[in-house]
């Protein structure tokens, strides 16, 4: 799901992305503007799924353990928040 949203933001539905791709740091695949757009898109997704997605957690921007360190980490955090509110 996160990969699809990033593809939409990048405007390239066929771009190859993996869960290991970084969202922050030197090798990030989207810039800060794109990252904010991604968060807003995930917020909308969450609302449609009946929960609020909090993208301001204490560790959000941590390179070592933050939700934005990779696509996979963000996907995991999104699903964790979904589960915790069910």
């Amino acid at each position: 799901m996160v990969i699809n949203e990033i593809r939409m933001i990048l405007g390239d539905p066929s771009v190859t992305l993996t869960g290991e791709a970084a969202l922050i740091g030197d090798n990030r695949i989207i810039d800060s503007t794109g990252l904010v757009e991604l968060c807003l898109r995930l917020e909308d997704k969450a609302i449609s799924m009946g929960f609020e997605f909090d993208w301001t957690s204490e560790t959000a921007m941590s390179k070592s353990r933050g939700m934005f360190r990779t696509i996979g980490a963000l996907q995991d955090e999104f699903m964790r928040q979904k589960s915790s509110r069910e």
Binding site: V36, E37, C39, L40, T56
Partner: peptide
């Protein structure tokens, strides 16, 4: 700012 700016971006 943190809570309202996203609404302004939208």
């Amino acid at each position: 700012c943190q809570s309202i700016a996203p609404l302004m971006i939208r």
